[in-house]
């Protein structure tokens, strides 16, 4: 395959960036999208140019490190992570636009790499449970109904990649925050912090400069893990419940 790539190049956070065009030949249909970028970088290094910086880690679709907005879609045209996207999703001769996540809470560090530590601070605000340390607890000590376990697992699938923020026209982090809140709030292990969790995580989310939800549904469409849009509805419900229970 022969491709024309238009890639966002930006030296650092303080320098304005721009799209740069590269021609790439000899791309196999079986390559992943990131392997295709590896080939581009090898060519750039041979030519003595600066390689394109992009985030990646496990390349198995489970770590949440890879990002990229490909032709306007977070993680590209397939419902998966960029590392699990293959070049067979594109045609010979295609022009592909590659951009970083865009949100003021996710500033660009270099080229396609953005700073997602705002997510870490949202987790620190309440994405944990209080549990005694030591040996593993007896598995049957705290029974969890099957339906609740399934619900928690559906939301626990969130890998925190930030595609929801990238796809949202308001740069909102509602789907990420709601996935984390619902995952723990439905379980008995998470119930001691049920109210403070949702209030603190929402308020940290606001403090990080993410936008608000207008229910466009773009986040759930972009999510590689299929976190449902109703996750946001459930978080709103939890938030309303918590404001009634907690006096601040």
């Amino acid at each position: 395959m022969k491709l024309t790539l238009r890639v966002w190049r930006q030296k650092n956070a303080d320098t304005p960036g721009a799209m740069a065009t590269y021609e790439l030949d000899g791309v196999s249909q079986d390559m992943s999208f990131l392997e295709m970028l590896d080939i581009l970088n090898e060519e750039l290094i041979v030519k003595g140019e600066e390689p394109v910086a992009f985030d990646h880690d496990c390349r198995e679709g489970i770590c949440g490190a890879c990002s990229l907005v490909i032709n306007g879609d977070a993680h590209g045209p397939e419902r998966t992570t960029t590392c699990q996207l293959h070049m067979r999703s594109f045609k010979d001769g295609d022009t592909i636009d590659i951009e970083p996540w865009r949100a003021s809470a996710f500033p660009v560090i270099k080229d396609l790499v953005v700073d997602r530590s705002a997510f870490d601070r949202v987790i620190q605000a309440g994405g944990y449970i209080t549990a005694p340390t030591g040996s593993a607890p007896e598995a049957h000590a705290t029974p969890v109904p099957k339906a609740d376990a399934d619900y928690a697992f559906e939301h626990a699938e969130c890998i925190g990649c930030g595609a929801c923020v990238a796809a949202c026209p308001n740069g909102a982090a509602m789907l990420f925050t709601s996935a984390k809140v619902n995952h723990l709030n439905v379980l008995p292990q998470g119930s001691p912090e049920r109210e403070t969790r949702v209030l603190d995580m929402v308020s940290q989310m606001d403090a990080e400069g993410f936008g608000g939800c207008t229910l466009t549904g773009e986040c759930a469409t972009a999510c590689p893990k299929g976190i449902p849009l109703f996750s946001i509805t459930s978080m709103n419900k939890e938030w309303l419940r918590a404001t009634r229970k907690v006096k601040r």
């Binding site: 799209m19 907005v69 306007g72 865009r102 003021s104 026209p169 993410f210 608000g212």
Partner: peptide, 17 residues
């Protein structure tokens, strides 16, 4: 707030809503 949270548009954007 929403406009401030997404100051930069994507070069390749499509109306989907």
């Amino acid at each position: 707030r929403d406009i401030k949270a997404r100051p930069e548009k994507y070069v390749h954007s499509k109306p989907r809503m």
